[in-house]
């Protein structure tokens, strides 16, 4: 295999691996921009992955699966909203609670309903979101350079992959070009000002967490219905936390988020490809170091050594209306 093919393949798996991160990262972006910290991305993703795969295999439809995944994930997001918006509870505690409830109940319910050790039944092709071949991909496959780039890298992904990457400009547009987005950002910086303008802080934040729920659902559905043909217990394996790291790395901006997720996805793809094989110049790098790199980079960023990550100012603080 030529060097060029290796690069194409690595980049291809980079895209595949960064999609769930990207969706979860954008999900967190809506919530955190509105001033609600959400460390429960992991749990919502996991619950959605389970619900999606379970419903898809029962109803034999990928779309119903996705619908149920969204339903479950949004419900969990609303629980988070109920605790942290309505009852002004601690947002970290609430997010953590959701992670545990999701981790436990996906295993318990999975085992009780399907009896396959926490797995859901393997999904048939029509129960998954299958790869789409973009027009002309087969025609230009043989063209050097451009051919493989178009037909391997850009074409041949599942619908959800394109959804994820289209969500980036869409989120940018919502956040910076719509009234809703302006208010969303404002409520994360200075909720009192938004309240004074006669806009409900609570309703705005609830809408933000619903957006979060929808996007984590797609992230979860991608894991269980695209990347693998069914749910496996604990299949998010910390991706929600990497997405959180990516969000900080991106300084809460959608386009940066895409690059951060692609970077973390690339590190993952590289770790898989190398499998401990020595790199030129650097020598042998332990796989564990590659796995820990996103977290280490985020800590370095948080320490203020690569620019400064400033979170939304009202983030994590429950809003108490003046009396």
């Amino acid at each position: 295999m030529s060097f060029f093919d290796v690069i194409i393949q690595t980049l291809d798996s980079t895209i595949r691996l960064s999609v769930p991160l990207l969706l979860a990262c954008l999900a967190g972006l809506y919530s955190e921009r509105s001033g609600i910290f959400d460390i429960g991305l992991e749990g919502k993703m996991l619950a959605a992955a389970f619900a999606g795969a379970a419903a898809a295999s029962v109803f034999h439809s990928a779309w119903i699966g996705l619908g149920i995944a969204i339903l479950v994930s949004v419900s969990l997001a609303l629980v988070h909203g109920f605790a942290s918006i309505t009852h002004r509870g601690n947002q970290i505690v609430s997010g953590l609670a959701i992670n545990f409830v999701a981790a436990g109940s996906t295993i318990i319910l999975g085992q009780a309903w399907f009896q396959q050790g926490g797995r859901t039944p393997a999904l048939a092709p029509n129960e998954r979101f299958e790869a789409i071949t973009l027009p002309g991909a087969d025609a230009i496959r043989e063209v050097p350079i451009i051919g493989p780039i178009y037909s391997e890298l850009i074409s041949g992904h599942s619908l959800l992959v394109y959804v994820a990457f289209l969500a980036v400009p869409f989120t940018w547009w919502v956040l910076f070009r719509t009234r809703f987005g302006l208010r969303l950002r404002a409520v994360g910086e200075n909720p009192a000002a938004v309240d004074t303008a006669g806009i409900s802080v609570a309703w705005l934040r609830y809408r933000a967490v619903i957006c979060t729920g929808v996007l984590t659902a797609i992230a979860g559905a991608y894991l269980s219905m695209v990347q693998s043909g069914g749910f496996v217990k604990d299949m998010t394996a910390g991706k929600g936390y990497i997405a959180l790291a990516a969000l900080i790395f991106a300084k809460w901006r959608p386009v940066n988020a895409m690059f951060a997720c692609l970077l973390f996805g690339f590190l993952d793809a590289l770790a898989i490809r190398l499998q401990g094989a020595p790199l030129p110049i650097i020598g042998k790098v332990p796989v564990q170091l590659m796995q820990a790199l996103p977290y280490i980079l985020t800590v370095i960023l948080l320490a203020g050594f690569i620019g400064k990550a400033i979170p939304p100012r009202a983030g994590g603080v429950p809003y108490v209306k003046e009396r």
Binding site: H87, N90, Q91, V93, S94, A97, V101, I107
Partner: peptide, 19 residues
Amino acid sequence: DMIVIIQGLVILFAGALEH
């Protein structure tokens, strides 16, 4: 894994929803 659920619920009700 039932404990994980209970643990999550305790954190939710005794922590985030304590009021």
